[in-house]
Design a protein around this nucleic acid. Structure first.
Lengths: 257, 257
DNA sequence: AAGTGGTCTAGACCACTAC
DNA sequence: TAGTGGTCTAGACCACTTA
């Protein structure tokens, strides 16, 4: 059974029968370690052999647990180098969440401009989306996204003050990478999953001003809730997108089928 | 090595070195068998032990190949019963492709009414979507989808005559199940994947008539290309959706994270 | 009871990366 | 060269379904 090299090693596996398969227990244990921040973004977690020994399972079982986490984009494997905590701020992961593309299918990184920033009491709608208690405070800010030198989307973003205490306008204006990269690096919050719902709406005066369209022009409204490790909603976002030159990629053809 | 019980058994595995991992070769072999129609919808493929023997690989390797196909919803495993060719016409799979839900998140099966049906020469746009040669013929028909006794979507559907020869209005009006179920049962065509792009548009006169909205009301326009086994586009569809009471589910939160 | 997929083991060897 | 993940084996036993 498990080769214990440190007293801190807890072969959680069989101590809790729990009915669930071993590899799922291992997966939960790994997720717990991640949520506790024990392994940091971007760098490697211990090698598979060591983890298998730590949890007291075979290498095959350990790999099955890691497979799941890799499929969920929480870990990333690199043959010969190691297994890494996925950096969702990295560019290659940006398009997992950013689904606005040109009519020709071309992907591009948006240029972001901050329009407003405030701290306020959450509305009922916002509390519902984020699972907040009455009178909770939130930060609410608006970005305008440009693609191909053209304003394409206004994003109204709401995040709980309780998770992002100390956030300032300067954080948002001076961040070097993506917004989720800022969440990760400055606040230790990892956005790993989102849910999005779309409707069609007509541009109002604010949309007209920011997106350079006429009032009454058709826009996509995207309501997003973003989730971190624990499955707790962490960001609520409403985007209004001018789809006259760009569109939303709902699902894409899986090559190799 | 492989236990050959029939001369037809071809342990394709090591005969073609091909550089690719064994389990991927097995996966391709299984896909080929499916594309040839050797195993029919809904019922079981041979047991894992038998397949492993047929392909001359270990059970673990065979399972890894099947794992991929199950992840792609091409096969479905049932413990104790067997592994089945997924019936995409079945209700439980309907919502893999149908992403229109109520504002409250409720899912419902639409009631479909056929509005028009014709056979015609494909437009350039349609040829591009379906990869057809010049002057190819297509069937083009329009459905209106109702949810909660309310018209919600007009679907303009284009399919190549070459694949659906003999299709009549009666096929569409009298089908017992879903449209993709009809493709599967009457024409042997399996829709296993789709790509969708969304824009916001304004209702025109036809939309107004079918969806009972004013001309100029905002609608979601969903352009879908549906693919079958070989990855060849098989259906092109443009939907106009009234999102005042329903919405499009872009991506959904993965529980268990 | 027989047959199926689901889990798990305890390795082996290969491909790739870093030093 | 040493260390990593990637592939593969040849089983064992368990959970579930069907009869």
């Amino acid at each position: 059974m498990g080769v214990r090299t440190q007293t801190a090693d807890i072969p959680i596996s069989r101590l809790i029968p729990s009915g669930k398969p071993l590899y799922q227990q291992v997966k939960q244990a790994v997720l717990g370690t991640l949520a506790r921040g024990e392994w940091q973004q971007g760098e490697a977690i211990p090698p598979e052999k060591e983890l298998a020994a730590r949890f007291g399972v075979s290498i095959g079982t350990l790999r099955k647990a890691i497979d799941d986490l890799v499929a969920e984009d929480i870990l990333t494997r690199h043959q010969g180098r190691g297994t890494f905590v996925t950096r969702h701020s990295r560019n290659q992961h940006y398009f997992k969440f950013f689904r606005i593309i040109g009519h020709d299918g071309k992907k591009a990184y948006p240029v972001v401009r901050l329009i407003s920033f405030q701290r306020k009491i959450a509305t009922a709608d916002q509390r519902r989306a984020l699972g907040l208690a009455a009178r909770s405070e939130v930060f609410e800010f608006v970005n305008v996204l440009h693609l191909d030198d053209e304003p394409v989307s206004t994003d109204t973003i709401i995040i709980p003050e309780s998770l992002f205490g100390g956030l300032t306008r300067e954080h948002l204006e001076n961040r070097p990478g993506t917004l989720y990269g800022l969440y990760q690096e400055a606040f230790g919050i990892n956005i790993i999953d989102i849910a999005e719902r779309l409707r069609a709406v007509l541009a109002d005066a604010a949309d007209s001003k920011h997106l350079l369209v006429q009032v009454g022009a058709p826009l996509l409204e995207i309501r997003r809730i973003a989730y971190s490790y624990n499955g707790q909603p962490t960001e609520f976002r409403i985007s209004h997108v001018n789809s006259s030159r760009h569109e939303y990629q709902g699902s894409q053809h899986n090559e190799g089928v």
